[in-house]
């Protein structure tokens, strides 16, 4: 492992994920490339079926058959991790890459105390004895803001509320001080008031620990508050990727423009929301050319034939022929 300064912590190159079905392979992720720098928060947004969660799953090596990576590379700190055997990948999960999932209830084993689960994770990855690990578990719970952490350490998951459980899950993900955390819809199952608490917590912890985060969500609001850069995914591809301020306030891809206009905003009174006609294509019916072309208000001939790759436009990379050669 080489520690070059400014080298990306995570690099995904031309990732392709397919699902084998009886009617032939379905391409769920198609030629997706991006990188995350140490300490950076990359937001990945998209509607359901865009492939955002699948990208996260592919990175932590938890794709379930019939899904598999059929092309591309995933590099963590310069080392390929997409072709590692299961055992080697298991050691990386937790130690170098932590994960936070949507439903805090299913991420914790209901049969074990929170302390058991924390200590087990800590001792799997760090050379500590039981007593040291327990001390660290307590420190983690305090860090994620659980009141009365010392007493609550030995409680079972069901004794925590939804928000508190998600804090425990964050503590678990942070247990071995990973360099990267993949957070898949970490606040979706929570109430608005609790969401804000969890987002603030996640931001603070990552800043303090210098942890990079891949934040997968469908909620633009969460991204706008948290991320440094954003990747907008549509039908298995990246439509637009760039700094959060650029993407949210000056979106270039017609899909991103539509998405931003579709979100009701408290500050702005509008008679009708911008709507993107139709819905995301199913995986077995992705149109040729740009996958967005049937719904795009600015579609022209080339969009129906050629598939655009991300190209630099005003600080972002946008996969749209509007910004292509000869336009």
């Amino acid at each position: 492992m080489t520690d070059r300064p400014n080298a990306p912590l995570l690099e995904v190159r031309s990732l392709r994920v397919e699902f084998e079905t009886r009617r032939g392979p379905l391409v769920a992720i198609d030629d997706v490339s991006f990188s995350i720098a140490p300490g950076e928060v990359l937001g990945v947004v998209g509607e359901s079926g865009a492939g955002k969660s699948l990208t996260g799953t592919a990175i932590i090596g938890l794709l379930e058959p019939p899904g598999r990576i059929t092309a591309g590379e995933i590099l963590l700190a310069g080392r390929r991790i997409d072709n590692l055997p299961y055992e080697a990948m298991r050691r990386i999960r937790g130690r170098e890459v932590g994960a936070i999932f949507q439903d805090p209830l299913t991420s914790l084993n209901p049969l074990y105390r929170v302390s058991d689960q924390l200590i087990e994770t800590i001792r799997t990855h760090l050379p500590m004895n039981e007593k040291e690990a327990r001390a660290r578990a307590l420190q983690l719970l305090q860090e994620v803001g659980i009141p009365g952490a010392a007493e609550r350490l030995d409680h079972y998951p069901h004794q925590f509320s939804g928000g508190m459980r998600q804090r425990v899950v964050i503590a678990l993900a942070l247990a071995a001080e990973p360099k990267l955390i993949i957070a898949d819809e970490p606040t979706t199952a929570l109430d608005v008031s609790i969401q804000a608490q969890i987002i603030t917590l996640l931001k603070r912890l990552c800043r303090e620990h210098g942890t990079a985060v891949m934040l997968i969500t469908h909620d633009m609001g969460v991204i706008a508050e948290t991320a440094d850069r954003v990747a907008v995914m549509y039908a298995g591809r990246i439509a637009e990727i760039g700094p959060v301020r650029k993407v949210v306030q000056e979106p270039h891809h017609p899909y991103t423009v539509g998405l931003m206009g579709a979100i009701p905003n408290l500050g702005h009174d509008v008679a009708a929301l911008t709507q993107i006609e139709g819905s995301m294509p199913r995986l077995n019916a992705i149109p040729p050319g740009c996958a967005f072309n049937p719904r795009c208000p600015k579609v022209f001939d080339r969009c129906r034939v050629d598939r655009p790759d991300p190209m630099p436009v005003g600080g972002s990379d946008v996969a749209c022929w509007l910004y292509g050669e000869g336009r």
């Binding site: 509607e47 539509g258 579709a262 979100i263 993107i276 006609e277 819905s279």
Partner: peptide, 13 residues
């Protein structure tokens, strides 16, 4: 999804 939500909210209006 948000883009679909916008469609439905507009339709309801």
């Amino acid at each position: 999804d948000v883009s679909v939500q916008a469609q439905i909210l507009n339709l309801m209006k």
